[in-house]
Design a protein around this nucleic acid. Sequence first.
DNA 1: ACATGATGCCTAGCATTGCTATGCTGATGC
DNA 2: GCATCAGCATAGCAATGCTAGGCATCATGT
Lengths: 196, 196
Amino acid sequence: MSAITERRERERAQRHQLIITAARELAEAEGWEAVTTRRLAERVEYSQPVLYSHFDGKDAILRAVAIEGFGELAARLRRARLADPEPPRTLHAVCRAYLEFATEQPALYQAMFVLPTEVKFAHAETPPPLRAAFDEFVSCFGSDNPRRELFAEVTWSALHGMAALSDSGRIPPDGQAERLDFLVSRIAGTPGGSAG
Amino acid sequence: MSAITERRERERAQRHQLIITAARELAEAEGWEAVTTRRLAERVEYSQPVLYSHFDGKDAILRAVAIEGFGELAARLRRARLADPEPPRTLHAVCRAYLEFATEQPALYQAMFVLPTEVKFAHAETPPPLRAAFDEFVSCFGSDNPRRELFAEVTWSALHGMAALSDSGRIPPDGQAERLDFLVSRIAGTPGGSAG
DNA sequence: ACATGATGCCTAGCATTGCTATGCTGATGC
DNA sequence: GCATCAGCATAGCAATGCTAGGCATCATGT
C-alpha cells in the first residue's frame, strides 16, 4: 500500500468523523428535523452522494452519532462515580451526571434514546459503549447484591423518563433536582417518609 | 340553522373522528412512518385536501390522536385505582395499568409521549385528559402527603422510561413485571433490602 | 322556475425530502 | 504519453407535506 493511499485513507477517516460531528452540531443547533442530507452535505463542503459513500443512508449517520454519544456518556458517568466513591452518594452523583448530560446536549440525547433506532440492548450487537454506560449504574450497587442488574435497569429507565419528559415539556423542567433527590433516596432504600 | 346544515355538521364531525381513528389504526398497524397524508386520505376515502379542512396539518392530526389517547389512559387508570382501593396495592395496580396501556397500543403511546409535540404539561393549555391521567397517580398517594405531586411526577417519569425503553428495545422487554414490582415497592417506601 | 351565490370536493401542482444513475475530471501506473 | 480508474458533482427519481385552482352541486332570493 503506497503512501498516497495511506494519506487518502486518513483523509477519508477524517471526513467520516467530520460528517458525524457536523450532523451532531446541526442537530444541536436547530433540531434533528433540520438535519437533511443536503444541509449536511453543504456543511461538510461536499456533495450529497459523498455522505452515502461513508454511510448506508441517513439512519446510519444518526446511529454513528448515537454511538459516539454513548461513549461520552459512559466516560462521564464513570468520572462521576469515581469522583464520589462513598456508597450512599455515588448513585446520586452518577444519576446527576446522567441528567446533566441529557440536559446539556438534548439533540445528542435524542439520537441515543428517543429517535427510532436499530440499536438494541442486551443483544450480541449492542455497542460496547452503550453497555459500558449501563454498567456504570450496575457498579453503583453492591457486588453482593444479586439484583443489581434489576436495580440498574429501573434506575436507567427512571432517569430516561425524567430526561425525556422534561426535555419535551411533558413535565415541568424545573423541579428536576428535587425529583432526582427523591428518586435516588427511594432507589437506594433510604427511608424518607411513607407514601401510602 | 336548517336541518340540512345540521346533518352536514353531523357528517362533518363523523368524518373528523374517522380521520383520527384511521390515523391511529394505520399507525398501530404499520407504525407512524407509514402514516402519510396520501395513505390516510385513501383510507378515509376522500382526497388529501379534505384532511386540511379538518386539521391544521399532519401535526394537528397527531395531536388529536394523542389527546384521545390521554382520555382513554385516564379512564383506564381510574378504573384500576377504584378496582383496587387498598392503599398498599393501589399504586401497583395503577402503574400496571399504565404499562399495559403502553404495551397494548404502542403507536398510540408514542403519539402521546414520544413524538415531538406542542402539548405541554402544567400549562394553561394542557389538555384536561392529560391532567386527569396524571391526577390518577397523585390520587394514589395520601392527601395528607405534601409531596404527592412530586411522588406522582417521579412515578409518571419512571413508568414512561420503562415503557419507552422497553418498546424501542433499549431494555429487554421481558423483566418488565419484575421492574414494576421493584419500582413500586421503592416508591411506596416498602423496604425490600438496601441498595448500597 | 331560474339565475345567483356559496359550499364542498377533486385534480394538479409546488417545494422539499432521501437516495441514485450518470458522466466528468484529474490523478495512477505502465 | 497514454489508458485506466478512483473520486466526485450534476442532475434526476419517487415520495413527502401542503396548496392553488377549478368544477360541480346545492341552498337561496326573486
